[in-house]
Amino acid sequence: MRLRSDLILRRLGHESIIVEPGQDMVDMSKVFTFNDTAVFIWERLQGREFTLETVVEMLLENYEVEEDIARRDALALLQTFKEHGLLME
């Protein structure tokens, strides 16, 4: 799978959001705010193919977390990305 290449991560103060650059008016119902971990993962996945295992490994290598928790969190994040159309078909 891949992240949509047309989406841009923007930082507004202490917030990080995903924006669709083609939108003339920002549709606030389609704004996604990310926490620091989601930003870390998004930045490293941009422009590359990845799997659930890729995300699990990123979490294990960069955070002190048990593998089962990393897997659960990675799956939840990718499901959220998919549900909100942030992944390429």
Rank of each mutant, 00 (worst) to 15 (best):
G13C: 09
R44V: 01
E66Y: 08
R72D: 13
D6H: 06
N62L: 09
T80F: 15
I18C: 00
E66K: 09
S5I: 12
E89D: 14
F34H: 11
R48H: 12
M88R: 12
M58K: 05
L75H: 08
M28Q: 10
R71G: 04
L77N: 06
L86V: 00
F40W: 12
N35R: 03
R11W: 09
M58R: 01
I69G: 02
E66D: 13
M88D: 12
F81P: 00
K82Y: 08
R11S: 14
Y63D: 09
M1W: 06
L7H: 04
G47F: 15
R4V: 06
G85W: 14
M1R: 07
Q46K: 15
L60K: 09
Q79A: 07
M28V: 11
S29R: 10
A38S: 09
P21L: 00
L60E: 09
K30I: 01
H14S: 12
L75G: 13
L77W: 01
V31P: 02
L78Q: 05
L75V: 07
F50P: 11
I41A: 06
L78T: 03
E20Y: 04
V19Y: 04
L59D: 08
T51D: 04
E43P: 07
M1Q: 08
D68P: 02
E43Q: 14
V55K: 03
D24N: 12
I41N: 05
V39E: 03
L45V: 06
I41V: 15
F50R: 10
R72K: 14
V19I: 15
R4G: 08
I8V: 15
E53G: 05
Q23V: 04
A70C: 03
G47K: 15
E53V: 07
V56H: 03
A76G: 10
I17P: 02
L9T: 05
M25F: 12
W42Q: 08
E53L: 06
W42A: 07
A70G: 05
F34P: 07
R10M: 00
L78N: 03
F32S: 03
G13E: 04
R48M: 12
E61N: 13
V39I: 11
V26Q: 08
L78K: 01
V26G: 07
L59T: 08
M88C: 10
V39K: 00
